[in-house]
Design a binder for these strands. Structure first.
Length: 236
DNA sequence: GCGACAG
DNA sequence: ATCTTGTCGC
């Protein structure tokens, strides 16, 4: 893991780029997204999810690793670090990935699939944070956004499991998925190394009666607590 | 030119 | 994401 991080820091790119340069990087990374399905749901044993929270320019990130499909918490890592890149629609990875990378580096277990808050290829340049992070860790990722960023769609039916497709022109870039009866849908897209239908089945199998898949739900709860007790943590 | 715009 | 009171509904 440490070797992997050093390797990636040398080969990827810097994160403190001006927006115009960041967009160029995204366009260059576009060809590196693995769209082959590497995930056999019956072989998934470890599933990870992350979430971030902010206190001014201080950011916190947590990664939780769960067993699958029974969804028992197996590992938790968190980091605290100053964040300078602002939130810019389409450039979320440049704000959040340094935190995610640092947290991922502390992980002892190697997740089979990652659930990432935000978009995958349902992005203007097909390079949402889930895809960007997938390239970095070279592991399957699913983009799981709570609201819309990119793509045309029709509202899905009201029942749990109802869905419609997200389109860019004639191309399907994601699914608008009703994960719970009568609540706002989730915007699911392939991040890296997984097919859209497997991603959707995976998400649904993690939403035990709630709108958000359990790992993301609990990552959110944990990061809120960590931020409240942020004094007791050391900066990186 | 006018909206839309993950977290 | 964060700010931030009351309020509608199961």
């Amino acid at each position: 893991m440490h070797l992997a991080r050093s390797f990636c820091f040398l080969t990827m790119h810097r994160w403190d780029l001006p927006p115009e340069e960041a967009i160029k990087v995204q366009n260059e990374l576009r060809s590196k997204v693995d769209l082959k399905n590497r995930v056999d749901l019956s072989k998934v044993r470890l599933i990870a999810a992350s979430d971030l929270a902010y206190d001014g320019d201080i950011g916190y990130a947590v990664i939780l690793v769960y067993s699958y499909p029974d969804l028992r918490l197996l590992e938790e890592v968190s980091v605290k670090r100053r964040v300078d890149f602002p939130y810019i629609p389409g450039l979320l990875a440049f704000r959040e990935m340094p935190l995610l990378i640092e947290a991922a580096d502390k992980l002892k277990k190697k997740p089979d699939v990652w659930l990432i808050d935000g978009a995958g290829i349902a992005h203007p340049r097909r390079m949402g944070i889930a895809s960007h992070f997938g390239i970095y860790v070279d592991a399957p990722t699913v983009g799981c956004a709570k609201s819309h960023l990119f793509g045309k769609f029709k509202e899905p039916g009201p029942k749990q499991g109802d869905y419609t497709y997200l389109y860019d022109k004639d191309e399907i870039v994601g699914v608008v998925l009703r994960t719970k009866d009568g609540v706002k849908p989730l915007f699911i897209s392939v991040g890296y190394g997984i097919s859209l239908d497997v991603a959707v089945r995976l998400i649904l199998s993690c939403c035990d009666g709630y709108r958000l898949p359990k790992p993301l739900r609990e990552a959110h709860n944990v990061i809120e607590r960590i931020k409240r007790e942020g004094d007791k943590m050391t900066l990186f």
